[in-house]
Nucleic acid binder design. Sequence first.
DNA 1: ACATTAAAGTAAAACGTTTTACTAATTCAA
DNA 2: TTGAATTAGTAAAACGTTTTACTTTAATGT
Lengths: 334, 334
Amino acid sequence: MKSLSIKDIAVKANVSITTVSFIINGKAKEKSISEAVIEKVKKIIEESGYKPNQIARSLRTGNSNIIGLIIEDISNSFFSRIARLIEDKAYKKGYKIIYSSTENSVEKAKELINMFKSRKVDAYIISPIKGIEEDIKMLIDDGNPVILFDRNLPDVNTSYVGADHFNASHQSIQSFIDQGKKNIALVTTDINVEQIVERYEGYKKALEDNGIKYDESLVLKIHFNQEESETIEQIKVLLENKKVDAVLFATNYLAISGLKVLKKINKKIGDDFAVIAYDDHEAFELHTPGISTVQQPLEEIAENVIKLILKQLSSKTKIENQQVIIPARLIIRD
Amino acid sequence: MKSLSIKDIAVKANVSITTVSFIINGKAKEKSISEAVIEKVKKIIEESGYKPNQIARSLRTGNSNIIGLIIEDISNSFFSRIARLIEDKAYKKGYKIIYSSTENSVEKAKELINMFKSRKVDAYIISPIKGIEEDIKMLIDDGNPVILFDRNLPDVNTSYVGADHFNASHQSIQSFIDQGKKNIALVTTDINVEQIVERYEGYKKALEDNGIKYDESLVLKIHFNQEESETIEQIKVLLENKKVDAVLFATNYLAISGLKVLKKINKKIGDDFAVIAYDDHEAFELHTPGISTVQQPLEEIAENVIKLILKQLSSKTKIENQQVIIPARLIIRD
DNA sequence: ACATTAAAGTAAAACGTTTTACTAATTCAA
DNA sequence: TTGAATTAGTAAAACGTTTTACTTTAATGT
């Protein structure tokens, strides 16, 4: 069954297409369409269940009311929660979200940007990876609203919203040291993104500030795309062979792998062994004992992202870039 | 900066728009365009970075290469994992996904369907709720490929993919009984969807099969949209006031709330108190002791969904409906 | 009574593609 | 050598909107 077009409505109402269009878009008054005609047309639209074809509308107006969201992986709870919040807030303003996961592949990220571009999304929200700076710059140069979150790209000149990773990490390590820990390990990933680097820098700086020598063998950089079993093996080696009394995991999925190792080798968290995970996860609260975590302020991040995007969308001129850095909270459990 | 159109390419190459279009769509040979022209045009396209405007393309061809995915909540790990798998597989076939969460609101679900309709998505993948049967039927009548998953709507006549909730639930209760449990509680939700009802039926049937009397006061139906704190309170009341020696939680988030209660009232899982959660979650594996769960075969569900959708998309005629029921696995931990 | 202005509405172009039906030039068969 | 078939390509319509510039009629001011 072919769906109705504005023409069908016009014919039924015995008015022109233009008139119907004006009514649909609330310009009837301003374009001096009589109350009687407005009523008649509205009634017909109502009864027939006509919905304007957004594709045609987009083609004509040049905007799609769609915001593209590019993230690393929607199945990661950090991103799925952010996505949900962003979707929610965008929805209320009449925008839809198309999301896609890059899986940390530069290739896929570029493809996604192209895809969004050819779909004429109105704005881009991107948790970027190194290697797509040029593509993002092109978007910006073409006048598209672009906002980065979670990870920044220092040489891309646009707004950014994210947590204060350096301080969160520094604080975490400081709390270990305050507990008297000396051999503090860091389990992180090898992807070269700012937020991960900052966590690493925070770790180093905190050691330095406390006069503890940095020991490279206590830093484990896990390859991003590898199987979890391999990750578990590597963490196991670290914990068994080094005398480590505290570990900071730089992402929640690494912490989960780490906890699996602890369970396996039956190493208990307690007075002589402490753990902090970056990014909260339900598993951490339930764990016995509770796992301390660095909580990113999801709600605030989402809010700022959407606020900035909407602001840019409703402004004719390019608004000034903003860097919103939100403190993360260290939650000490048990 | 205006983006390039096919016309710009045509002008640059000094050929007609038609020719460029044929080349872009791989119909050059068939339409007898010379090798030389093909090369020239391809080169120009390459150099200029031209990408066809998908909106215009969609308007003309009537399809968008977008599949709409309607789920309950993207931040629930069951859905976010399924979404990721579906996205992945769809992407490989050149389809994009637009998802949106209904939050179990009939209103929002209807709105989403309308939105997708006006966006002319090529197909619908829906984890439905009661109350939108008519809307879905209309989609089907209009010739749209529609596939339901996770939850079925008995009186909607279309394909469905989901786990065998009745048997999974039955099996779980049977395993409690085999362990000698007598006072088995069920914590479930009050949303009236088939998959939840089936879990309830499986519970009842298993009790009956074993000659255990059904006790309504052991079934706790949690209101869907309430605050977690209230849920926790209700579960707490159940566990403290009834002598219960086993609990089946009908969803993973209920189980998580339940575990929080256990931690709070310091009730241990062990020989005299057992728990099974429906839908796995990382927290369950890590929990001490491990929480037994009913694992839904995510990969298989996603695979079947996408297979059916693609089959329907590539077929001119309506293919026969299929009901794919996949067994769930009961994972006994510790 | 006449020119202006306002009211009520419409025709047609434009957005960027795809596709159908066509043309012109060349090759081929008999 | 002529008509048919092939090769190489193009003009223009169509998809369903929005929007600009226009027309026609009625009301108003002087």
